[in-house]
């Protein structure tokens, strides 16, 4: 037990826990809306784009890749929302194209331009997160805290709007809610959250952070408010436990966090069935 306590005295562990908890809070809050609107694919597509963007940053030799990744991902989010909105099957295929294309181009760029001696390690870390959450620079910590606080504040202020747009978009539009604007904000917040999550779980596992807490909460709770609160709590707890477990067991951080998410989902599923 004292061994566990000693871990917390390391600043990098404290940073990882703070940033991880904030990221989990952002992604699980947005996850409720994204899952209910069948928008999970946007999170998935954006995470691949973020990977591609990170590779571009690496190829250009930019050491702090977050600002560039953020800009590229935000722009893609807006484009994806446009495509997903109107074009039906064509839009769907366009999204898949962008998403898988970004993945391939990203890997290619990393291969061609990387000066690193451990290429497969870098790629693995970008895809699955590995240890980047434990090696955050001071700047990255502050940037992450700032962006998550901004995302959470925006979510709280827009909570009722997002509810009405999520439950019934055409009704909301008919009574004069600016649905286009709120969809855009939702896409932007998602993009920011995806970029933040890259540090924690890596590109391929981001969707898990977004969808698992929401799905778990929906198994048991029945009001939108309780689902949202529960998803947030589940998301944060799973992430904190996952990070601690990964340090103690020396397992990859991202995969451990997601594994905890899966276990908790199983528990909620069982509880939901028993009721």
């Amino acid at each position: 037990m004292s061994g566990l306590a000693s871990y917390f005295s390391y600043p990098f562990v404290k940073n990882a826990l703070i940033v991880g908890a904030l990221i989990a809070l952002c992604s699980s809050l947005l996850g409720v809306t994204l899952v209910l609107r069948r928008f999970s694919f946007i999170g998935d597509g954006l995470s691949h784009v973020a990977f591609g963007a990170m590779a571009v940053a690496a190829a250009l030799g930019i050491s702090n890749d977050m600002p560039l990744t953020l800009v590229i991902t935000v722009i893609s989010a807006v484009l994806m929302l446009r495509a997903g909105g109107g074009a039906g099957i064509k839009g769907d295929a366009a999204l898949a194209m962008v998403s898988v294309g970004a993945l391939a181009v990203g890997y290619l760029l990393m291969n061609v331009f990387s000066k690193s001696s451990n290429l497969s390690g870098d790629v693995c870390s970008a895809l699955f997160g590995s240890t980047s959450i434990l090696t955050l620079t001071k700047l990255e910590v502050w940037l992450s805290v700032l962006l998550s606080v901004f995302t959470i504040a925006a979510f709280l202020l827009l909570y009722n709007k997002l509810f009405s747009v999520t439950f019934d978009e055409s009704f909301a539009k008919a009574v004069g809610v600016k649905t286009g604007l709120y969809n855009l904000i939702l896409a932007l917040l998602t993009a920011v959250t995806v970029v933040l999550s890259m540090k924690l779980v890596g590109s391929l596992l981001i969707s898990a952070l977004i969808i698992f807490p929401a799905l778990s909460a929906m198994r048991v709770f029945k009001s939108f408010l309780s689902v949202t609160v529960c998803a947030a709590a589940v998301g944060v707890l799973c992430t904190v436990c996952g990070i601690v477990a990964s340090i103690v067991l020396a397992t990859p951080v991202g995969a451990t966090v997601v594994a905890v998410d899966i276990i908790v989902f199983g528990v909620f599923y069982a509880v939901g069935k028993l009721r």
């Binding site: 009722n160 009405s164 439950f167 009001s223 939108f224 408010l225």
Partner: peptide, 9 residues
């Protein structure tokens, strides 16, 4: 929650 959302406009 659903009824209240009618006031959103």
């Amino acid at each position: 929650e659903i009824v209240l959302s009618g006031f959103q406009g």
